[in-house]
Computed example of a mutant assay.
Amino acid sequence: MTSQSEPGDGSPDPSLTAVMSERRQLINVAYRLLGSPADAEDVVQETYARWYAMSARQQQAVASPGAWLTKVAGRICLDLLRSARVRRESYVGEWIPEPLPGRTEWITGWSGGTGADPADRVTLDESLSMAFLVVLESLTPAQRVAFILHDVFRYPFADVAEIVGRTPAACRQLATSARRRISDSQTPATAAAARPDVVRAFKEAWEAKDIDALIGVLDPDATAIGDGGGLVSAELEPVHGSGRIARRMVELMDRAPDLTLLERTVNGQPGLVAQQGDAIVVVIAFGLVGDRIRSIWAVRNPEKLRPWTTAG
């Protein structure tokens, strides 16, 4: 247990420093579990509120404050994931995780855990990509928690079990099932990171309203998904095929000739932002197979674009 400073000795409390130093780790975990920076912040605030609601004696009895905080945050996330599955049944159109602007140091720094087989590990960069976050939506809440905590953050299954409320063996099976589902998913979670040159070629073809050039940069089996949340116009169903996508993109540009496309980093990878005047109206992330764009995720829901209004 971390030692406590004697009251009134004027020295900083090392246990308080240890507790506060866990904030970035908790944000890391919560965003990957929930796909929402705002929800992740709320989870961390609630976690700390529960810590400070305890008496000093109760806090001093906690052998590892970091483990305690992660356990509480994980359980809050698990409850939110279960309720989110119900809420999304009434969501208008497709649901896409909230995109993160380029400055993501707060979401990528990590102190590390132990106990995972290196073959099972997923890097933090991979777990931040839109392709990865999208495929996580196909998992059950328990699978998602077990997979993220073990495979991404390398927590041993004994610790995961305390959060999920199952045995370590059951949590191992949850993670195995999650890996299998991710591997079998139609969305390539391990798709290559979007390359700046490919994204730029897509941008230039879109600006020129060149259907043939757009088709040339798109995979023949490409899929485009829009998320307006019922608040703004967006395709309610995915658009499949390079030809259909290219024509839709040109139609959009015809309807919004004042649209300005900017190259920006989206979830740590090259992406695009579209502005009308000073307002950001859509953030677009890409997934590649080879040198072609296989997946396009276009977030238009203004509630999901709030982090971009303050991004530099």
Results as ranks from 00 to 15, higher is better:
residue 88 R to C: 09
residue 88 R to T: 02
residue 88 R to E: 13
residue 88 R to M: 13
residue 89 E to Q: 15
residue 89 E to Y: 06
residue 89 E to L: 14
residue 90 S to N: 08
residue 90 S to G: 06
residue 90 S to K: 15
residue 90 S to C: 03
residue 91 Y to M: 07
residue 92 V to F: 10
residue 92 V to C: 10
residue 92 V to P: 02
residue 92 V to Y: 09
residue 92 V to S: 14
residue 93 G to I: 06
residue 93 G to C: 09
residue 93 G to E: 05
residue 93 G to K: 05
residue 95 W to P: 02
residue 95 W to D: 03
residue 95 W to T: 00
residue 95 W to L: 13
residue 95 W to N: 02
residue 95 W to R: 11
residue 96 I to E: 04
residue 96 I to R: 03
residue 96 I to Q: 04
residue 97 P to H: 09
residue 97 P to K: 04
residue 97 P to D: 12
residue 97 P to S: 14
residue 98 E to R: 14
residue 98 E to F: 13
residue 98 E to A: 15
residue 99 P to V: 07
residue 99 P to Q: 07
residue 99 P to K: 06
residue 99 P to T: 08
residue 99 P to R: 07
residue 100 L to V: 07
residue 100 L to A: 13
residue 100 L to P: 02
residue 101 P to M: 06
residue 101 P to D: 14
residue 101 P to N: 06
residue 102 G to H: 03
residue 102 G to Y: 04
residue 103 R to P: 03
residue 103 R to I: 06
residue 103 R to W: 02
residue 104 T to C: 09
residue 104 T to Q: 13
residue 104 T to K: 13
residue 105 E to N: 06
residue 106 W to Q: 12
residue 106 W to V: 12
residue 106 W to D: 11
residue 106 W to G: 08
residue 106 W to E: 13
residue 107 I to P: 00
residue 107 I to L: 14
residue 107 I to Y: 04
residue 108 T to W: 00
residue 108 T to F: 00
residue 108 T to P: 05
residue 108 T to G: 02
residue 108 T to V: 14
residue 108 T to L: 13
residue 108 T to A: 06
residue 108 T to D: 14
residue 108 T to Q: 11
residue 109 G to Y: 10
residue 109 G to T: 11
residue 110 W to C: 04
residue 110 W to H: 07
residue 110 W to I: 01
residue 111 S to K: 15
residue 111 S to D: 11
residue 111 S to H: 13
residue 112 G to P: 01
residue 112 G to W: 09
residue 112 G to A: 12
residue 112 G to N: 08
residue 112 G to L: 12
residue 112 G to V: 06
residue 112 G to Q: 10
residue 113 G to D: 07
residue 113 G to C: 02
residue 113 G to V: 01
residue 113 G to W: 01
residue 113 G to E: 04
residue 113 G to N: 11
residue 114 T to A: 07
residue 114 T to K: 07
residue 114 T to I: 04
residue 114 T to R: 05
residue 115 G to S: 04
residue 115 G to F: 00
residue 115 G to T: 01
residue 116 A to Y: 00
residue 116 A to Q: 02
residue 116 A to H: 00
residue 117 D to Q: 02
residue 117 D to H: 02
residue 117 D to N: 15
residue 118 P to K: 14
residue 118 P to D: 13
residue 118 P to F: 05
residue 118 P to V: 12
residue 118 P to M: 12
residue 118 P to R: 09
residue 119 A to F: 05
residue 119 A to H: 09
residue 119 A to E: 11
residue 119 A to T: 09
residue 120 D to F: 01
residue 120 D to H: 05
residue 120 D to L: 01
residue 121 R to A: 15
residue 121 R to F: 04
residue 121 R to W: 05
residue 122 V to D: 00
residue 122 V to Y: 01
residue 122 V to L: 15
residue 123 T to S: 15
residue 123 T to L: 08
residue 123 T to H: 09
residue 124 L to S: 03
residue 124 L to E: 03
residue 124 L to P: 05
residue 124 L to F: 04
residue 126 E to F: 03
residue 126 E to V: 13
residue 126 E to P: 00
residue 126 E to S: 03
residue 126 E to C: 04
residue 127 S to W: 04
residue 127 S to C: 14
residue 128 L to S: 08
residue 128 L to P: 04
residue 129 S to T: 15
residue 129 S to M: 03
residue 129 S to E: 09
